[in-house]
């Protein structure tokens, strides 16, 4: 008994979060799906080489049904759909995580300083964010892509720009509530410096909502990227991406529906997995909701 408690002390916060996560079945399902997709993206070259399988035309074997040739069949150029899904996962995940990282860094910095300093600076900055929010995110992303040109990196930036206000708001509101909390003053009363207050009190208390916003944000970024690729402004053929796979398959929706269904399922599954994980993390990160 006593030893248990001692160990509990050493394992610390992360194991407590993990313990609570494990109890949440839907979140664990989300995590498992996400890990499978991430593994697919990492080992995409083992599933099918980029040049030899994923983008090499083989007209003789075009529009083969799933299981007839390869697990997921082939598309209208005879390319292996499984390999394309795996390489597409790579692109989608990079864009999803990358866009969130970029918007988190910029939005977080803007929101944190606005919340911390307040006053006129806060007002000006947050009104600018409101202006960006007033523009539909897809349209804004479209405009940025049109200005910068296509490509994975530019797509990432375009999606990130539209998302920055969301992160700025979440971070600002968290910082605002916590900055005025009594326990911050209590920490000052025992002689804590700014660094200690930030590291020990503000960041742990802000982290929860931000992690949740990020996990949910990755899902929507992937969707946005797919949307832009679908209308031809995102990732360009022949590089496979879930959105442009859907787009290319439009003509074959009757003759070869698996070309639509399979990328669609992967897109939906990834976003679902991220949302489940995000919800689970929110609950697990808050000790007040323990058990």
């Amino acid at each position: 008994m006593k030893r248990d408690r001692q160990q509990g002390l050493k394992q610390g916060k992360f194991s407590a979060v993990w313990r609570r996560m494990k109890k949440n079945r839907t979140a664990m399902a989300g995590l498992v799906i996400l890990i499978i997709i991430i593994l697919m993206a990492i080992f995409a070259d083992l599933i099918g080489d980029y040049n030899e399988v994923a983008t090499k035309m083989d007209i003789a074997n075009r529009l083969m049904a799933p299981m007839k040739k390869g697990l997921f069949g082939t598309d209208h150029y005879g390319r292996d759909v499984l390999a394309r899904i795996a390489h597409g996962a790579r692109v989608s995940l990079i864009i999803g995580f990358g866009a969130v990282l970029v918007s988190l860094v910029f939005g977080g910095a803007i929101g944190a300083t606005a919340g911390f300093y307040g006053g006129r600076y806060d007002n000006i900055v947050m009104r600018c964010m409101d202006i960006i929010m007033a523009i539909p995110s897809t349209i804004l992303a479209l405009a940025v892509v049109a200005a910068l040109g296509g490509g994975i990196f530019n797509l990432m930036i375009a999606i990130a720009v539209a998302d920055i206000p969301n992160y700025a708001r979440v971070v600002r509101s968290s910082v605002l509530t916590i900055r005025n909390a009594d326990y911050i003053e209590a920490a000052n009363a025992v002689g804590a410096g700014t660094a200690h207050v930030l590291a020990r009190h503000i960041i742990p208390n802000v982290l929860g909502p931000i992690i949740v916003q990020c996990t949910l944000g990755i899902g929507s970024s992937i969707l946005n990227a797919a949307g832009l690729s679908y209308i031809g402004l995102g990732v360009q053929a022949p590089r496979p991406e879930w959105g442009n796979m859907l787009s290319e398959a439009r003509e074959f929706i009757q003759s070869a529906p698996h070309l639509i269904i399979i990328p669609g399922i992967f897109l939906a599954l990834t976003v679902l997995a991220l949302n489940l994980l995000g919800d689970g993390l929110r609950d697990a990160l808050d000790p007040r909701l323990k058990d």
Binding site: D182, E185, A187, V190, G191, A192, H196, H201, P204, P287
Partner: peptide, 25 residues
């Protein structure tokens, strides 16, 4: 402090809260 609900960091355990001044100083 007046309000024992607000003046304790909700993410710290009792042990961490009480030992915080000792670590800081």
């Amino acid at each position: 402090f007046q309000d024992p609900y607000a003046s304790l960091d909700p993410r710290m355990t009792v042990r961490e809260i009480i030992s915080e001044p000792i670590y800081i100083n």
